[in-house]
Design a protein around this nucleic acid. Structure first.
Lengths: 207, 207
DNA sequence: CCTCAAATCTTGTCAATGACAAGATAAATT
DNA sequence: AATTTATCTTGTCATTGACAAGATTTGAGG
């Protein structure tokens, strides 16, 4: 039977994209515990079983969303570093700003990306995406202390990442003065980044 | 009807404790997503509805578990600081070691305590317990830079906590060389702590 | 153009879960 | 001893993720 011209077609057409998009909005609205496959389906206006044809399980959808998150994180870090000129230290601070800005704009997605559960549904694509963000960071740190030994470099890569990640994580969890205006919070973030860079430079100084 | 002498009594007697204990083991075994109220009840050998008489909801049980986690975290930090003698810098490192050791020993509980979801079921007791851990840390940092201005102190409290928290968080998520032996990982953790303390001392130096 | 296989989406079902209701049993209080 | 309160039980409900089977659409080969 011919369908009315305004009726929705039997085939969605871009259901995979619609599910990813709906899923991202849903998780930011209701948190990870409020994320359900059926609500994603509802928001994409398809039946509860439709997602199965695009994602084998709820973890598969989460893995896809997390993978895209890493791509965006990498892009945000890269863009902010570019805006920061050629000085290695300034670029490292810039990457940190990009990192924090992405996390602040996508708090639940960020939590998903770095959650323990994420290790359970880790796909090759997810691992690859995460690795590229890591390498970007690693290079930025090493550029600040090119003369340092390999071991010192490695430890400063750890330390720098830990400082940035720890700070924004605590902020997002509301542990660090949630009452602060975003402006004041930004200043505190920059202070943490400055302390981090200074420590890296100092540790990497002539052996 | 009289019950057989070995049959379990109708009243558990210490169900609240049993549920907390079972819940902690369960979450470490299966992660936060594998945590269910009914499995806690099963492990405590009671019916699925029994927990309701001790915890109004699953979030109530999680809040209680998280609260105890903060108490243990505070105790671990305090104990390790005591073991570290009287030098303020050494004590700060010690507290960080205690912090990391607690997190490593209770990774899922630690994740729960600092998860975004935790803010949703925050009870007064939980807030209080978290605050006492925070104050312990704050005092340890301020003791290292007693001559610094209030603002510098505050920012170094942020920074120090972020470094410690970020490092152990990344380790637990498997982002930082999961393959490392725990011995090597410990060395890297100490390196991060040293860099942190040095940065604090430096930032707090005579203005 | 036609046929048929593959992809996509639907309804129907299942066990598991959190929450609630109502009743049974034990303990505590008076 | 009687009665109230606390504790635990069985029973039920809507929601969820996953699976099965059937309907619709697409599109590739003849």
């Amino acid at each position: 039977m011919a369908r009315a011209k305004t009726a929705k077609p039997y085939h969605h057409g871009e259901l995979r994209e619609a599910l990813v998009s709906a899923g991202r909005k849903l998780m930011e609205e209701r948190g990870l515990r409020g994320f359900t496959l059926r609500e994603c389906a509802r928001r994409a206006a398809v039946s509860h079983a439709a997602p199965a044809h695009h994602f084998a399980s709820i973890d598969d959808l989460l893995a896809e969303i997390a993978t895209r998150g890493y791509h965006e994180l990498t892009a945000a870090m890269s863009a902010e570093a570019r805006r920061s000129g050629n000085d290695a230290a300034a670029r490292l601070v810039g990457q940190g700003v990009g990192y924090m800005a992405f996390a602040a704009a996508n708090p639940v997605l960020f939590q998903l990306m770095f959650s323990r559960e994420a290790n359970r549904f880790e796909t090759p694509e997810l691992a690859e995406a995460a690795k590229s963000a890591y390498h970007l960071h690693r290079e930025a740190v090493e550029a600040v202390i090119p003369q340092a030994s390999g071991e010192v470099k490695e430890r400063m890569v750890d330390f720098a990442w830990a400082s940035v990640h720890g700070f924004i994580t605590l902020v997002l969890e509301g542990q660090l003065g949630e009452k602060d205006s975003s402006r004041a919070l930004k200043a505190r973030g920059l202070a943490a980044l400055s302390a981090m860079v200074e420590a890296v430079v100092r540790a990497g100084g002539e052996p």
